[in-house]
Computed example of a mutant assay.
Amino acid sequence: MKVSPSIKAFDAATPAAAAQRRPSALARKLRKWRGLLLVVVLPTALAIGYFTAVAANQYASEARFFVRGPSSGNNNSMGALGAMLGGAGFKAVPEDSMAVREFLQSQDLVRELRKSVDLVSIWRRPEADLFARLWLSEPSAEMLTRYYRRMVVAEFDSESSTVSLLVRTFRPEDSKLLAEALLRASENLVNRISDRQRGDAVGNARREVEIAERRVIASREALTSFRQQGRAIDPTREIAASLESVGRLEDALSQTRAELQEKLAYMRADNPQMAVLRNRIASLDTQIRAERERLTNGRGAAPEVLAGYERLMLEREFADRQLASAVTSLETARADEARQHLYVARITEPQEAESAQYPKATFTIVSLFAVLLVVYGIGSLIFAGFREHAS
């Protein structure tokens, strides 16, 4: 019978091997807190390393301004600043200030600015770090605009109607230079808006005057043509004179008939004087009928002539009134043009920074740590709920 070997030696080695396989206390702690280390501690440590050893200093230049125009007498909505400006004879224009703020964040401004300022060189200085600098030496307009919006911030304050401009670069002189260029671009935009507004008002008023002048000329030419065709300077007066003549003829006819009746009372009917009176009566009657026929019938009848003449006179009167109103509007527009001038009023000028304000390392690290800690806590609660539900 074969005897099995003794297992005491293996039994003696088993505790030592088990002790070697058991993880150390440090390893157990690392395993226990590996989630916190990976989610919170490691990113925070990387951020600390970046801001202390890699991040380049960024210098800021600030400026504040507003767009102002003539005072309208109501600056209560702007608070103390608006009251002060209104007392000086002008007021801030919130709509134009907001338009300038939008322009400062637009791609059009970036394209315009590249013609006078080398933006790429400014944001690719040798001292700039890899993560903060502009990566490409020949970026597209879209990429440069996205980077520009990171480094240039324009904010509008609705209470004071002012625009705050903040420019960040890697050199103090670059920040001031770029801020000055942005202010000049804003002034150019406001000047274009002002010129367009004033030009439109005066241009519209001038066109109205031209239209009224053509109407006046047309009405006067029509009236002249009417007078030439009718061979009458003032048909109203001529017709009134004709009616007065008819009236006198009728008076003479009445007097002659009365005289005839009177003489028939004591003269014979074949008396020569009776024949003269009868002939005069017939002549007056014929003349009256001819005058009435001329005034009421035919192409040159008085009603038709009067209607056409009055219509032309009314058109001329309306044209003269329109011209007078248009001329008044033009003078008003010109007066407003002299007053309605918008321009940028600077409250604070850009200055060269004496020390770097960015990146804000302490604030960023603390904020990152707090956010990651909250995320870790929420994640831990969610996983704990899953494990409890699974068990």
Rank of each mutant, 00 (worst) to 15 (best):
Y50C: 05
L38D: 05
R149F: 06
A356F: 01
H341Y: 06
T348D: 13
L306T: 13
K32Q: 14
V190P: 00
A269T: 10
R257K: 15
L381F: 11
R268W: 03
S137L: 05
A390W: 10
R21I: 09
I48F: 11
E155S: 12
A47V: 09
L314P: 00
R150W: 09
L30T: 10
G89Q: 07
R34E: 04
L109G: 05
T169Y: 05
S186K: 05
F103I: 00
Q255W: 01
A181G: 04
A335M: 12
K2D: 08
E238M: 02
V41K: 00
R280V: 02
L223I: 01
G203P: 03
E102N: 13
E331M: 05
R387E: 10
L119G: 09
L330K: 13
I378E: 04
A45P: 07
K2F: 14
G203T: 08
G379Q: 02
A205I: 07
N74E: 14
I193C: 00
S97M: 06
M1H: 11
K176E: 06
Q261L: 08
Q351N: 14
I233F: 11
A319G: 04
N204A: 15
K32A: 15
N76E: 15
S325L: 12
L312Q: 09
Y343E: 12
L323M: 10
H341I: 14
V120M: 07
A17G: 10
R28L: 15
Q261K: 07
R21Q: 14
S186T: 09
V276P: 04
F318E: 12
A88D: 14
L165S: 07
I211G: 06
R28N: 09
A63W: 02
A384R: 12
V54W: 00
I288N: 01
Q197E: 10
R257T: 08
P70W: 01
W135D: 15
Q273F: 06
P272Y: 04
E95K: 12
E95P: 01
E208F: 07
D118A: 13
A60V: 12
M151S: 12
F51K: 08
V110F: 06
Q107I: 01
L277E: 02
P359I: 03
A25E: 06
Q229C: 04
I193R: 08
M274G: 02
N76V: 08
R321P: 07
A128M: 03
A9T: 08
Q197L: 14
S355T: 14
R150L: 11
A258L: 13
N279F: 00
R268T: 15
L381G: 10
D118H: 04
P94F: 09
F170T: 01
A302D: 03
F51W: 12
I233G: 01
V344H: 02
V327M: 13
